[in-house]
Amino acid sequence: MIEQPIVLDVAIRNWVVIPILLVLFVVSALKMNFTKIMQIQSDRKQDLQKTMEMQTVARTRKLTAYYNRIPQQGFLMRKAYFTNKETGILTYNEPPQEENNPMDALMQASLMNDSSGMTDMLKGNVVHLIPQISMMTWVNHFFSGFVACKLPFFPLTIRFKSFLQRGIELSSLDVSYVSSLSWYFLCWFGSEGINAILLGENIPSMDQQLFQSQVDQGPPNQQVPIHKVYNSERENIDMIRYESLMDNVEERFLNNLTKKTTITDFSKVSSPSSSSSSSSSVQSKNKVPKRR
């Protein structure tokens, strides 16, 4: 069966297909810049005290994660610095908060934080939802009732006809001819990848990333009162039983060497093979610091 190609009007291309693509791109660009501006504005509210608390929490988390990579003395000093019962950093913040009416302060803090978080969420939702809805109605209202383009891939089943060919009541039309709304959806899904490349910051440098990670950590921690976080972190540090990663590192290294040399000796008995294997194992040892 040979399909007869339907010739579409060039005006449809000029005034429907290309404008939808362009408008989607522009709107997504605006959206991204808008969210960036919102982020910057919300960052200004952070005060010094809060950022300091965030930094200490980050430090304690780093310590709990990588404690076995520092010497024992260093670990003990850090532990004392954080969890000493009188002068430790993590115990410092509790007394003043408990002295002056803890419940009121907590309630106020939680209310304030909750409301700001809620408004941020709302803003984000509004920024994402309103353009989508308005553009869908725009496309549906102006460009319905005619065939906009033809999908090059195999025709979908008849069931999709009512969805893909909105506003076209032709029962004999091939399913691969679609109306403008499905072209809009195609652009929407396709442009996400393109936006990620063109509009997203290309590959952010280290400083920007650090900044962003700090910003990202902000909201969840704000909702929990800080001394609870401190308490849990202090317990975590107290729980650690110190074991150094470097305890018998030379034995392990030699073990690896002997294993590799024995394997290579079985295959071919020669001195250069052992040297090459040693160099390879040195490389494998060096892997770890490179990733940091």
Partner: peptide, 21 residues
């Protein structure tokens, strides 16, 4: 998966411009 949608978009776009209109 992430590459498929841009591929389909540009495929249909140029296919339509060159072969349909």
């Amino acid at each position: 998966g992430s590459g498929l949608m841009p591929y389909i978009l540009f495929w249909t776009f140029l296919y339509n411009i060159i072969h349909i209109y």
